[in-house]
Amino acid sequence: MARDDYCGPDGLESREVDTPSPGAGEVLVRVRAAGVDQGAWHALTGLPYLGRLYFGVRRPRAKVVGMDVAGVVESVGAGVTTLRPGDEVFGICDAAFAEHAVGKAKTLLHKPANVTFEQAAAVAVSACTALTALRGVIAGQRVLVIGAGGGVGSFAVQLATAFGAAVTGVCSTSKVEFVRSLGAVATIDYTKEPLTGEYDMVLDIAGHRPIPALRALLTPRGTLVAIGTEDGGRWAAGVDRNLAMKTRNPFTRQTLRAPLSIVRPAELEELSALLADGKLTPAVDRTFALGDLPAAITYLRDGRVKGKVVVIPQT
């Protein structure tokens, strides 16, 4: 699925493109499944505009979007010794919404045997984001996850639980049972009740609540983590809140963090071990055929997804 200019989901077209070739340190993967996250929508639309400094100022540098991937190695570039043709892998690639994609060998790992391709394709971006956000959580702490029913949130609830924390998940009515099934000891239905309690960490995912309101939920030395936001307009969504947190952090006993979402090899290794041990299970809400990618992105943006959405190339 490709486009030439920034567009909405309906602007994507099915078209034939040349199969990419792996360069030094790269791997060519036959895509078996590709995860859909909010980043795909931002790359597709070029919103907020600040993101175009990375995606391309006037026109997108990449005609095909997508990062999360799971598939089978078809060929490897020079210098690659960790993977070989036939290996089942997961991680990130460039232009994952296609039948073939190229990625760096260091951000592609062997897929655990107990995880399906669809599950593995849901992991890299969202789970690495959750893992980065939860750094510092220890057993016995109380963690509030706002946005617990989404892609990042579903991983955050499981990871914090695996670390020994007691998790309260904030979600809508339709996702309460789902969030409990992930390991949350309590839930708050934000459509019916206010946020209450005192927590060692508050993780606000794609939220827009004021910083003082979130800090009021923390212990005196608690940690507030804000990641991703759809608030802030078409120019620089979330930048104002993130800057405000960084500015205030040196002047409070509480810790205010707004980490960037970056997929690192060490984090993928940690997640792979948790997957293999059964301590982390990707929650896949629905799968779509690759040709139905516009519908998959629209479904995600409507906020109905419980966990992750995945697209599958037709073979």
Rank of each mutant, 00 (worst) to 15 (best):
T287V: 09
T81R: 15
L293S: 02
A283Q: 08
A122H: 01
G149W: 09
V125Q: 02
D204K: 12
G11D: 08
G303A: 09
F163R: 14
L203F: 13
G149T: 03
H42T: 04
E74T: 04
A283P: 03
R59V: 04
P85R: 07
P220F: 08
P282K: 06
H208M: 04
R3N: 00
Q158L: 08
E118H: 01
V89L: 04
S181P: 07
V179I: 09
L159R: 06
A33C: 10
A166N: 15
P210I: 14
E267T: 09
A186D: 12
P22V: 05
E118Y: 00
V284A: 09
R59E: 11
R257N: 13
G39N: 10
I262A: 13
K246H: 15
G233D: 10
V305N: 00
G46H: 04
G291P: 01
P259S: 04
K63H: 12
V64S: 03
V137G: 05
P48A: 11
G164I: 06
P60M: 05
L131R: 12
F163T: 00
K111S: 11
R142S: 14
F251I: 03
V125M: 12
I297A: 05
A133L: 06
G66E: 04
A236M: 14
V36M: 06
E74F: 00
A289H: 00
F178D: 01
I297Y: 07
I211P: 13
G150N: 13
A184I: 07
V36G: 07
D37Q: 11
N114I: 00
G149F: 10
H208Y: 06
E74S: 10
V137S: 10
V123H: 11
T161S: 15
R253A: 12
W41M: 12
D302P: 00
M67E: 01
V27D: 08
R32F: 15
R84M: 13
R215H: 01
W235S: 15
G291Q: 07
R209N: 15
G8N: 10
R135M: 06
R135S: 00
A258D: 06
Y190G: 00
L290G: 05
D231A: 15
Y49I: 15
G71Q: 10
D5V: 10
A258R: 04
A213G: 11
L256R: 13
G307E: 06
E198Q: 15
T82R: 09
T168A: 12
E270Q: 10
H208T: 03
